[in-house]
Simulated assay, not measured.
Amino acid sequence: MTEELLTVPEVMGWLKVGRTTVYDLIRTHRLPSLTIGRSRRIPADGLRDFLAARLQYEEAA
Rank of each mutant, 00 (worst) to 15 (best):
G46T: 07
A53E: 12
A52F: 08
T21N: 04
D45G: 12
R40P: 01
L34G: 00
P43S: 04
L51D: 05
T21I: 02
T28R: 11
T35G: 00
T20W: 02
A61Q: 12
I42W: 10
E4Y: 10
R48S: 10
R41V: 03
R40E: 05
R19L: 09
L6V: 10
T20Y: 01
A60Q: 13
E58G: 13
T2H: 15
V17Y: 03
L6A: 06
D45I: 04
H29Y: 09
L6H: 10
E58K: 14
S33V: 02
W14A: 15
L47A: 09
L51Q: 14
G18W: 02
E3T: 15
P9V: 03
H29V: 11
V22P: 00
T28G: 03
R19H: 12
E10D: 08
A52E: 15
L55A: 15
R19E: 15
T7S: 15
I26Y: 00
M12P: 01
S39H: 12
T21G: 00
G46A: 09
G18F: 00
L25F: 04
G37I: 00
E10V: 10
R48Q: 10
T7D: 10
L25E: 09
M1C: 12
P43H: 04
R19P: 02
E4M: 14
R27I: 07
K16G: 01
A53I: 07
S33A: 11
K16T: 02
T20L: 05
R41S: 01
Y23G: 01
L51M: 15
I36E: 06
E59K: 14
D24L: 07
F50N: 08
T28Q: 12
G13S: 13
E4F: 09
P32M: 05
V11R: 05
R41Q: 09
D24S: 10
L31K: 04
E4H: 05
K16N: 11
L5C: 02
A44I: 09
I26S: 00
R48C: 06
A44R: 15
R19I: 08
L55K: 10
T28I: 07
M1G: 15
K16E: 14
A53Y: 07
T7M: 07
T7V: 11
G46P: 12
V17S: 00
G13W: 03
L47R: 06
P32H: 07
G46R: 07
A52Q: 05
E4N: 09
R38K: 12
A61M: 13
R38E: 03
T20F: 06
T35S: 01
T35E: 14
V22Q: 01
V22F: 00
